[in-house]
Design a protein around this nucleic acid. Structure first.
Lengths: 264, 264
DNA sequence: ACCCTCGTTTGATCCTGATCAAGGCCATGG
DNA sequence: CCATGGCCTTGATCAGGATCAAACGAGGGT
C-alpha cells in the first residue's frame, strides 16, 4: 500500500502559530548532525511538558529529536486512513484532529478528538484501526514507529510515559462507553461540552468560551446521535440562556445548570 | 476507606479447577523463602503464557511470584467497588468477572468481562474507576499495586507486556464504542456473541458451543440495550435456527448468517 | 448584485427499541 | 406437595430520537 500524504504541507507556513522558524528546522531534524542545533526544536515546543516527550530530560531529549520530523496539515486533510500501514506515531503540537472509524454502509463513529499534547498511533496492529483527519490547521511531530519503539526500549522513562498515555486513553474510552451506552441524548451533549471544556482548559487555561472546531455532524457521530438531535439540544440551551452562540464555539453562561443535566 | 473483601475465599477450595494444592501454596507466596518451593505455583499456572506474567522467563518469574497472593471468589461476590482505594492489581487465572460502572440513578454500564489471562486494575487514579464482580467461581493472582509497579521498573519486559495489555484493552474499548454508538440492536447482540466466542476460543480452543456466564441483564447493560431486546433478539435467532439454546450458553448453528448480520 | 454550496436549524412524521405488564421455568426450601 | 423468588420470555403500548423535508444563513465565486 502506498503512503500518500494527502494535503500535508511539509514546509511550515509560518502561519502565526508561534512555531515559526523552529518548525522549518524540525523538518530536517532527522538529518541534523549538530546536537546544539537540533535541541532548539524541542526546547521551544509548547506541548513538551504535556506530551510523552516529557519523559526525557534536557540530556536525553536529543535522542528523540533526532527521530522527529515535523508535519503540518491543512484543515480537512487526512493524516492517515484506517487500514493504512502504521509506519508512524505522532504527537500533536497544535490544532485539532478527528479520529474515526467508518462502517461499510457509511455510518461513522468518531472515536475521539486529538488536541495538542496528545499522542496518536498507539496500536498493536500493523495497520491503523481508525482514520485521523485535521479539523483545523494542525502540526505534529512524526516518529517512525519502529524507531520510537526502539528508543522506548533504551529510555525506560519514555516507555513509562507511553504506558501512562495508553492508560489515560483507556480511562477516557471507558468513560465514553458509559455515555454511549446509558446516557440520554441531552446528557450526552452535556457530557461532551463539559469534558471538552475541561480538556481545553488543561492546555489553554480555563475559560467560559469553548471553541468547537468540530462540526455538529462530528459531535453527533461522536455521541451516537443525529445532527438534528445535537442541534435541537444546543438550540434549546441557547433559548434557556445556559449557553451562548459565539463564532467557532459557544460560551457557557450557566455552568451550574449545564452540570446539573448530568446525574453522576 | 476500609477494604472489606466481601465473599472472598482466601483458601483454595480444590474445586476441581486444576490448581489444587498449588493455590494453597500461593497464598503464602509472599512469605515463602524457598525459591524452589514457590516456583511451582507459576510453573503450573494455566494462563502464564497469556497473561502479563509471560513477560518474565523462568529465571525472573520468581520475582513476580514473591509478590503474588492467590484469591478465590465465589459467584456473585465483589472483588472491588468503584471508588475503593486501588491497592491491588490482578491477573485472572480462572472464571469470569464483570466490570461495570454505575450511575447515581441505577443505570449501569458493563465496561467488559474479564476472563483467564486478563489483567485487572490498570488505572492512573488512586481509586478504582469501576467495580469488579465474579460471575462464576473465579481465581486471581493478586499483586500489591506499588510492588508491581516497582518490579515493572526493574524488569522492563514486564512494563512492555503491561503496555501491550493496556493498548489491547484500548483497542477493545474503541471497537466497543462503534458498537454502542452506531450499531442497531440486532447488530450489537451479534457483535457480542461473535467476539465473545472469539475470545473464549483463544483460551479454550474454538467451539460452536459458547458459554455465557453472564445474565441477559449483564449483556443488555454491556450493549446499551434492555433485557427484553436482548431476549427477543436471541429468541428470534433460535426460531431461525441460527443459534441453539444450551444450558449455560448457546451453540452457534449458522456462523454464516450470524456474521452476515454485522456489516463491517 | 446574484447564485451556489455547505452546514445548520426547525418542523412533521415515523419507527426502533424502551417501558409496562403478565406469565413461564426452574431451583430452593418449607 | 406447594410457595417463593430469580431469571427469562412474550405481548401490548409508548416515546425518544431518527428520519424526512424544507428553509435559513454565511461565505465564496461570477
Amino acid at each position: 500500500m502506498s503512503l500518500e500524504w494527502k494535503g500535508i504541507i511539509l514546509v511550515s507556513l509560518s502561519d502565526g502559530s508561534g512555531l515559526g522558524d523552529a518548525s522549518v528546522n524540525s523538518i530536517v531534524a532527522g538529518l541534523c548532525t549538530s546536537p546544539r542545533g537540533c535541541s532548539s526544536v524541542c526546547a521551544t515546543c509548547r506541548v513538551r511538558l504535556y506530551a510523552v516527550c516529557s519523559a526525557l530530560g534536557e540530556d536525553d531529549i536529543s535522542d528523540l529529536e533526532r527521530l522527529a520530523a515535523h508535519v503540518e496539515l491543512s484543515p480537512r486533510t487526512s493524516l492517515f486512513q484506517a487500514g493504512d500501514l502504521a509506519r508512524f506515531v505522532y504527537t500533536v503540537t497544535s490544532g485539532t484532529l478527528r479520529l474515526q472509524r467508518d462502517l461499510a454502509d457509511g455510518r461513522r463513529q468518531v472515536i475521539g478528538f486529538a488536541i495538542p499534547g496528545d499522542f496518536i498511533g498507539l496500536s498493536l496492529d500493523e495497520t491503523y484501526r481508525f482514520s485521523a483527519d485535521a479539523l483545523t490547521t494542525a502540526s505534529l511531530c512524526r516518529f517512525d514507529r519502529k524507531d520510537f519503539t526502539s528508543l522506548s526500549h533504551v529510555r525506560q522513562s519514555l516507555l513509562e510515559r507511553l504506558h501512562l498515555a495508553a492508560t489515560h486513553e483507556l480511562t477516557i474510552a471507558q468513560d465514553h462507553m458509559v455515555v454511549l451506552g446509558r446516557r440520554k441524548a441531552e446528557e450526552r451533549v452535556a457530557a461532551f461540552l463539559l469534558r471538552w471544556r475541561e480538556r481545553l482548559g488543561r492546555i489553554n487555561g480555563r475559560s467560559a468560551t469553548v471553541s468547537l472546531p468540530m462540526s455538529r455532524q462530528d459531535m453527533a457521530d461522536h455521541l451516537g446521535l443525529t445532527i438534528e438531535t445535537v442541534s435541537r439540544t444546543m438550540a434549546r440551551w441557547m433559548r434557556d440562556r445556559i449557553i451562548l452562540d459565539v463564532p467557532g464555539g459557544i460560551r457557557v453562561l450557566d455552568q451550574q445548570r449545564l452540570s446539573a443535566i448530568l446525574p453522576d
